[in-house]
């Protein structure tokens, strides 16, 4: 219940209508959107029960490892109702054509593979919010100071998922496990995304805001 309340509203991409469509424009829009989403997601993390009790250093380490997984999982959940399209924001939905134009066809196809998995399972909002918190708590940072505290956070979230499934999906006792088993693909896809945006950063043609840059650099 606390995670459902903490779930942030979607934000708008607001692509500049005066700029003609191009790969640079699409990537600029996405990087600006990601930067603003990250601010929102850091605020969200503080509402995960147990997260604020971690040391500041461990909170930072988990976010530095897991931020892209959180961004992608949010796009995936928003896209469940559509067919072969990614809802980066309510006013920014990418189809195959736009993905090609932005040079994001491979990455977006990988994200669509996740969408397909969750569609097949009928992922619910309750499951999505817990899974997202688990992705953060389980982001496997190498810099954790108090790994027992992080383990306790993982256990609490894992327990919440198991309780939810026991109550709401007693017909499928393996549903919680099935959901956890989607996390490797999320990790893999996030790693691809980070790699892709690191090379865009090195190109230097797309302006990026400071928080997005800071977190990309934490992954470099």
């Amino acid at each position: 219940s606390l995670l459902l309340v903490a779930e942030p509203e979607g934000i708008f991409a607001m692509p500049d209508p005066t700029v003609p469509e191009s790969d640079i424009k699409a990537l600029t829009t996405l990087c600006d959107l990601a930067d603003r989403e990250l601010v929102v997601n850091i605020g969200w993390a503080k509402h995960i029960p147990g997260f604020p009790s971690l040391s500041l250093a461990d909170q930072m380490s988990l976010l530095q490892s897991g931020w892209m997984e959180i961004l992608i999982l949010r796009v995936v959940f928003r896209s469940l109702a559509l067919e072969d399209k990614l809802v980066y924001a309510e006013d920014y939905i990418m189809d195959e054509e736009q993905s090609k134009l932005a040079g994001l066809l491979d990455l977006n196809n990988a994200i669509l593979q996740l969408v397909k998995k969750y569609k097949t399972m009928g992922l619910e909002k309750e499951e999505f919010v817990v899974l997202k918190a688990i992705a953060l708590a389980n982001s496997d940072s190498m810099q954790i100071e108090d790994s027992e505290a992080v383990q306790r956070l993982q256990d609490v979230l894992h327990g919440a998922l198991q309780d939810y499934e026991a109550t709401n999906h007693p017909e499928d006792p393996r549903r919680a496990g099935k959901l956890i088993m989607t996390l490797p693909l999320l990790r893999q896809t996030a790693a691809r995304a980070v790699q892709h945006f690191c090379s865009i950063k090195q190109d230097g043609r797309v302006p990026m805001h400071k928080l997005f840059l800071e977190l990309l650099e934490a992954k470099a």
Binding site: V39, I42, L56, M60, L63, Q64, L211, E214, L215
Partner: peptide
């Protein structure tokens, strides 16, 4: 930590 000052600031904000 100096390298990650925006994240640090956002986590420290009370909101």
């Amino acid at each position: 930590k100096e390298k990650h000052k925006i994240l640090h600031q956002l986590l420290q904000n009370s909101t």
